[in-house]
């Protein structure tokens, strides 16, 4: 009772990375709280799935295995989680901040009247004193997240309602197996006792993988390249960096004209205007036609071989160097500092 629970997402027989990362975090929270870590997996054809989950230090794994439960739809998964949480009364419940976790989490929290904090970047255990009502709380979950477009970082707590629920994005927490020989037990959920026929009101009629459309306008981070990038191969490095740090790739008119990028990525007077919190300008000289489309960026990093490039007037960081050298280093050191 009152354990830490993690909802595990499954895609084509594999537990999602974000869920494994949450199991790792859940294990360490359970250690701090001296309680058990439990996991729930809901889907179809789950035979042997425990081998992927229990080594992360899971003491109890709940499995709901039925062909009606994959692919994910909201209501059956909600019904199972809500009933299970009512019975097991977890103190903490974690989910991935994915299209599944952010669909399921709020629904569950509303049904249980428990608080939910989305997209946490850090989760730690701590105490709280409510001075107004003279109440002391021990061992609460501090749910730490950026808010307000990243302008503040807030620590959120749920003093009175349980479970304390949080979602976390993929890649934020590290993933670490506790022990291949970890001993946990498996409990099978009798699906028909948890799910009602009317839960199947929404049906998935078609599903396919498809690359998302370019959306530089609303991107929080833009990595943009200019003519100075020099080649299509070098431009690919921009995509690599964007992939790693969660950015979109943009381009100056000169880069589009040179064939390095498609027109839909063009930033500037004749392209799109962007206002990201971070703009990384690579090999862009900084003609006014271009800067008109990015000058409202909150922070600008300019990478250029010319230390007098006009773009540097807009920059918070100026790196004088070659794209082919600088970008791989940025990727390397980003990875070193996040995992």
């Amino acid at each position: 009772m009152n354990n830490v629970f993690v909802y595990c997402e499954i895609e084509e027989g594999q537990i999602a990375d974000v869920s494994l990362e949450l199991l790792t975090k859940g294990r360490s929270l359970a250690d701090d709280l001296k309680c058990n870590l439990e996991a729930v997996v809901i889907g179809a054809d789950l035979k042997g799935i425990e081998k992927q989950i229990i080594p992360f230090g899971v003491d109890t794994l709940w499995i709901a295995d039925d062909k009606s439960l994959y692919p994910y739809t909201t209501l059956p998964h909600t019904s199972i989680i809500v009933k299970l949480f009512e019975e097991e009364k977890p103190q903490i419940a974690l989910m991935g901040a994915t299209s599944i976790g952010r669909d399921l989490g709020p629904r569950v929290s509303s049904a249980l009247h428990s608080g939910l904090t989305a997209d946490c970047t850090s989760l730690i255990i701590g105490d709280h004193e409510d001075k107004k009502n003279k109440k002391e709380y021990k061992d609460l979950l501090y749910q730490i997240r950026p808010a307000f477009g990243g302008n503040i970082v807030a620590t959120i707590i749920n003093p009175d309602c349980r479970p304390q629920m949080a979602t976390v994005r993929e890649g934020v927490m590290k993933k670490e197996i506790r022990s291949e020989a970890y001993k946990g037990k498996v409990k099978n959920i009798e699906v028909e006792k948890y799910v009602k026929p009317e839960d199947f009101i929404v049906k998935v009629i078609e599903r396919h993988m498809e690359a998302s459309k370019v959306n530089i306008k609303n991107a929080g981070i833009v990595v943009a390249g200019g003519y100075g990038v020099g080649s299509k191969e070098n431009f690919d490095k921009l995509y690599e960096l964007a992939d790693v740090i969660g950015a979109e790739v943009g381009a100056s008119r000169a880069a589009v004209d040179a064939g390095y990028a498609s027109h839909e990525r063009q930033i500037g007077q004749t392209g799109v205007t962007v206002r990201p919190k971070l703009y990384i300008a690579c090999g862009i000289s900084g003609q006014i036609q271009h800067t008109a489309g990015m000058e409202e960026s909150s922070m600008v990093i300019a990478i250029n071989t010319d230390k007098n490039a006009p773009i540097n007037n807009f920059a918070d960081y100026i790196i004088t160097g070659d794209i082919a050298d600088v970008i791989p280093k940025m990727i390397k050191h980003y990875k070193l500092n996040t995992k």
């Binding site: 929290s109 009247h113 428990s114 608080g115 939910l116 904090t117 709280h128 501090y142 749910q143 950026p146 990243g150 302008n151 503040i152 970082v153 807030a154 620590t155 959120i156 707590i157 749920n158 003093p159 009175d160 309602c161």
Partner: peptide, 11 residues
């Protein structure tokens, strides 16, 4: 149910 315990400004 959720309360803001602390705010750190990163403007």
């Amino acid at each position: 149910p959720t309360k803001v315990k602390a705010i750190e400004n990163v403007v």
